Amino acid sequence: MKKSFFRLLSVAALLFLLFRPSIAFEGARNGLILWGSIVVPTLLPFMICSNVIVTLNAINILIFPVKKLLHQFFYLSDAGSYALISGLLCGYPMGARTCSDFMDSGRISSKEGRYLLAICNHPSPMFLLGYAASNLPSQVPVSILLLSIYLPILPVSLIAKVIYQVSEPERSLPTSKKSTQSFDDSMMDSCEIMVKIGGYIMLFSILALSITKLPIGVPEYKAVILGLVEITTGIKAISESFSGNLCGLWIAAATAFGGLSGIFQTKSVIKNAGLSIRHYVAWKAFHGLLTIILFILLSRVLELVPFP
Rank of each mutant, 00 (worst) to 15 (best):
M1D: 06
F5R: 08
F6I: 13
V11Q: 07
F16E: 05
L18D: 04
A28F: 08
L34V: 07
W35N: 08
S37L: 13
V40T: 11
V52K: 07
A58I: 08
N60K: 15
F64A: 14
K67W: 15
L76H: 04
A79E: 13
G80L: 10
G80P: 03
S81E: 03
Y82D: 07
L88Q: 05
C99Q: 03
D101I: 14
L116I: 11
L116W: 06
I119H: 00
L129A: 11
A132S: 09
A133C: 09
N135C: 12
P137F: 09
S138L: 15
L147P: 00
Y150K: 06
A160E: 08
Y164R: 07
Q165P: 00
S167F: 12
E168Q: 14
E170R: 04
F183N: 02
M187G: 02
I216E: 01
G217Q: 10
V218T: 13
P219G: 00
Y221H: 10
K222C: 02
I225L: 11
G227Q: 04
L228E: 04
L228C: 13
T232W: 05
A237W: 01
A237G: 00
I238V: 10
E240Q: 15
L246G: 03
G248L: 04
W250A: 03
A252F: 00
R278D: 12
A285R: 08
L294E: 01
F295Q: 01
V301W: 11
F307N: 03
